[in-house]
Every structure is written in structure tokens, then in C-alpha cells.
Computed example of a mutant assay.
Amino acid sequence: MNQMTEIAVEQALASDQEKQNPKMIGKDVDVFYGEKQALFGVTLDIPERMVTALIGPSGCGKSTFLRCLNRMNDTIDIARIGGRITLDNEDIYDPKIDVVELRARIGMVFQKPNPFPKSIYENITFGPRIHGIARNKVDMDSIVEQSLQKAGLWNEVKDRLHEPGTGLSGGQQQRLCIARAIAVSPEVILMDEPCSALDPIATAKIEELIDELREHYTIVIVTHSMQQAARVSQRTAFFHLGNLVEEGSTDQIFTSPQEKRTQDYITGRFG
């Protein structure tokens, strides 16, 4: 067996190993906005406690697919979703599913930091109050501290918890939004281009945070930056014109893509 073949076999084995424990599975997912079809039969496994990056040019369907994973498309009247998406083998579009509870299990961090116009403390306790997670102030205080610690923000804000969250810098606001998502103990965190509005230093902090969070959470990130996908993810899925073109281990996608469209996008020939 020559060296190239050995490398290919190692990549395939690593890929199989990574896919053994999918936390979520999308099967033949179609999305329509009115008459326009935005996703065409997307099938993708989301492995547990890994970062899966969704990449592709603008308008390719990556954010549309992300929004399917916690039923954010339900908020759009003309949206229609086909196929099946499961969380721990349970169909998340089953009519019996409580969508509020589902979104506690699958948190979301948006492109632009969107702290509530409340104090830092109230931003974190908002979800636990709604879901009845905390019984008293001691519980609330503990959740606030733990969430801010996990989001790498505690030391920066512990003396100003009752000041407005909107008074923080952009990067701090985004970490506050991540802490807010963590506060309800989600299993999955979705991130829709979480660094696109941030400067390079704040971006580096968020990327470092993502790497730490994957020890405890399953993470799916949409990013327009291929460098970011290469840095933070273990698996990458490439979307183009509403189709999932290729997915695999991040190393394989970036070093030896199987599809010409993937190679053309990664090498900058289009996108």
C-alpha cells in the first residue's frame, strides 16, 4: 500500500469514526419559500460534541439549513419544509414536539450580537426563568456565574452584572449571547456567522471559545470564512445553489475534496 493510499484509508476511517454518533440527522430536507425552492434534498449527519461548519457562497442554503435545525423557519409564513430532521432519533417536526422546549435544547447565536435591553444578569436569567430551571436567587446567581465563566466573560463583567448588556463591546456582547444560550443547558448550539460583525481580536476570542465549548456541546456554525471553518471545525459541509455538494472531515474537504465544485470554491475560482 503506497503512502497516498494509506492517507486516504486513514481519512476514511477517521471520517467513519466521526460519524458514528450523530446528535442530529437531516434526511432529504427540502425548503420552499412560497414557490421558490431554497434547499434540495439535503441529507447531513451532525456528530455529537463536534463542530460542524456549513460553508458556501452567499445564498447557497447554508443558513436556511441551519434555521431548520431548531425550527426557526416556522416563524416565516411562506416557509414549507419537507424531509425529516431528528434530535436523538426524535423527529423535531413531530406535531407533539413543544417548540419552546426544543429551542431550549437547541440554542442559537445570531450574526449580529443581540443582547436584550436589560442588565447582563437579566440577559442570562431570562431563559432559566421562562423554563423554570432556577428555583431561587441562589440558583440564578450560580447559573449566571457558570454561564459567563463558560463564555469566557465572567472576569470582565463580574463587577458590572447589573449594568446594561448593550453597554458591552461587540465581542463581549456576542459572548454574552453565547452565555445566554448556554444558561438553559442546551445540547446543541447553532451559530449563524457569529463573527462577521466582529474585529479580528474579538473573532479570535470567539473561535477559542467555540473550541472549548465543543467538549460539552454539539455545535453547528455557518461561516463565510473558509479559514475560520478550517480552524474551528472537525467536519465541513459545502453547499451550493441549495444543494449539499459534499461533506466530510474538515481536513479531507480542504485538502482532498472529491467534487470539482468544492475544489473550485476552496481555491477561490468562484464564490
Rank of each mutant, 00 (worst) to 15 (best):
E101I: 07
R103G: 05
I133Y: 09
P47K: 07
M140N: 13
W154M: 04
N114K: 05
N155R: 11
S147I: 11
P128C: 09
K150F: 01
I124R: 04
R49T: 03
S147Q: 09
V144H: 04
M140A: 03
G167H: 13
D45W: 01
G107R: 06
L87C: 14
V157E: 00
E156C: 07
I46M: 01
I81F: 02
I46K: 00
A134F: 08
K62T: 06
P164R: 04
E145L: 14
D77R: 11
K137N: 15
P115M: 05
V100N: 15
G107T: 11
D141E: 14
L66V: 13
D159H: 15
I85W: 00
M140K: 10
S147N: 09
P113R: 11
K62I: 09
P57Y: 07
H131N: 14
Q149C: 12
K62P: 01
L168R: 00
R67K: 15
D139W: 15
R49W: 04
N70W: 03
I81R: 00
Y121D: 03
A151R: 10
E145P: 05
K118L: 07
G170P: 02
Y121M: 10
A151Q: 06
L161T: 13
M108V: 06
S169P: 08
G59W: 10
F126L: 09
P164L: 14
E122S: 09
N155Y: 15
F116I: 13
S119M: 12
R105C: 01
I85F: 00
G82Q: 13
K112W: 10
G170V: 01
F116A: 15
F126A: 14
L87E: 02
R135A: 15
T125R: 05
R49D: 00
L168K: 00
G59L: 10
V51Q: 06
W154R: 02
E163D: 12
G152F: 06
E163R: 14
G171R: 10
F65W: 05
M108W: 02
G107F: 06
C60A: 15
G165Q: 01
G56R: 14
H162I: 02
I130M: 15
G59E: 10
T86V: 07
F116P: 06
R84D: 12
N73W: 09
Y121Q: 03
I46F: 01
I85G: 00
K158A: 08
D139L: 04
G61H: 11
R71E: 07
M50L: 03
Q111I: 10
L66I: 06
G59Q: 13
